[in-house]
Structures are given as C-alpha cells and as structure tokens.
Nucleic acid binder design. Structure first.
Length: 203
DNA sequence: CACCAGGTTGACC
DNA sequence: GGTCAACATGGT
C-alpha cells in the first residue's frame, strides 16, 4: 500500500498543527494558495492580539486583520472571510455545529463564504475530527498522473472507497501526500516510484 | 524576472 | 453540470 510506504519513508506528520479547532479553521482559510510558513506568521500575529477566538475575531477591526494577515496574500478577502466565519461560530457554538451529522456539517461549512470543498473537508477532518478525505491540488495531480481524472467529489469518493474509513488514516494520508509531493514531485509530473506503487499495490 | 503556494468566488456558457 | 479571470504577498 502506498500509505504504508509514505508513512514508513516520511514518518507521521501529525497534522493539523494548531492549538485549537478554531485555529484550524482560521488556518484553513489563510493557507489557501499560500505557503504554510506565511500562515504561521499570521497566526502568530493574531495570537499576539488575542484574536484567535470566535467573538474577539468577529469584533476585530478589519484594517487590523488585513495588516496581520497580509503575508498570506489575498488579504482583503481573507480578512473579511475569517471575520465572517468567526461571527458564525460566535453565534453558533462549535460544539453544537460539530455535533451535526457529517453531511449536514459539511454543507453548513460550505455555506460559509470562503469555504469551498477542500476547506470544508479540512475543517470536518482536522477541526471536527470526522472522516472526510481531503483532496487538494497535489492529490489531484497525483491521480491525474496515473490516469484518473474527475471532479473533486469523484476523486474523494474513489479515495474513501479504497481506504479504511478512519479519521487518523485520513489525516495522515492527506498530510503525507502533500509532504511527499512537495519533496519529490514536479509541477506537472509525479515521482515515478509512487505512481508505480499506486498502480501495482493500491492506495 | 517568471513562477508558484495545503483555493474560492461570481460570471458565464 | 463545467470553465475562467480575479484575488495578492513572499520566496526561489
């Protein structure tokens, strides 16, 4: 299995690095098309200003937010989006929202501005701890390299059908694919070994 | 200097 | 249903 090989080669990644579920959610928006190192800087600044909390972030000055997250790019839309999402969770306690059935929770997250498929699944998996496999650009490219193309949902269904429905495995596998791709794959092609392994030994 | 990073949205077909 | 420009900074 590719999962076992990646785990063996790279070791556990322990994603998502964050102190709280709310930090995961904010980070999920900030990391869109952005290197994690820049997200860490922004998270750090938000923490210094005690803004990594639902009500505080919801009430924060938009100009201050823009300054604090400028290093993440798309800073104007991201500032208004994390503020909007903070307002939602200030009104709807996370514990209540996360206790919704998985599909309902996912739809609820998708209804928030700034939350698309990947971000919704990152929140469901890494913040709420429920089994939804996250498909990102690296995963999409890896699949394309072995001849499998499809919509986000189609790729996700394929993964979820191939591997055990286990939150810890979902978390690690996605993280491993990202780290492996960053280390060994080019922009338009994947490492030959993993492709061969995927074809011959399965996910 | 060109290219890309752990995407999403709204407009349009 | 799908495609596509726009969104923006920081590092190689």
């Amino acid at each position: 299995m590719v999962y076992d090989r990646l785990l063996d080669e790279l070791g556990p990644q322990y994603w998502w690095p964050a102190d709280t579920a709310f930090e995961v959610i904010v980070g999920a928006i900030l990391t869109q098309q952005t290197k994690w190192i820049n997200v860490e800087k922004a998270i750090c600044g938000l923490k210094e200003h005690c803004l990594l909390e639902e009500q505080a972030l919801a009430d924060a000055d938009i100009g201050l937010l823009e300054d604090l997250i400028r290093c993440c790019g798309f800073y104007r839309q991201k500032a208004s989006r994390i503020k909007g999402i903070a307002s939602f969770f200030a009104e709807n306690p996370m514990e209540d929202v996360f206790s919704l059935p998985l599909d309902e929770l996912r739809r609820k997250m998708l209804s928030l501005k700034g939350v698309g498929n990947e971000t919704a699944d990152s929140i469901v998996l890494y913040a709420a701890g429920k089994p939804k496999f996250v498909i990102d650009a690296y995963t999409t490219r890896m699949m394309k390299c072995i001849g499998i193309e499809g919509s986000y949902i189609q790729l996700q269904q394929r993964f979820e059908a191939e591997i055990p429905e286990d939150v810890e495995i979902y978390k690690e596998y996605h993280a491993l694919i990202v780290e492996y791709s960053k280390a060994f794959c080019g922009r338009n092609r994947c490492n030959e070994c993993i492709l061969k392994d995927l074809n011959e030994n399965g996910y």
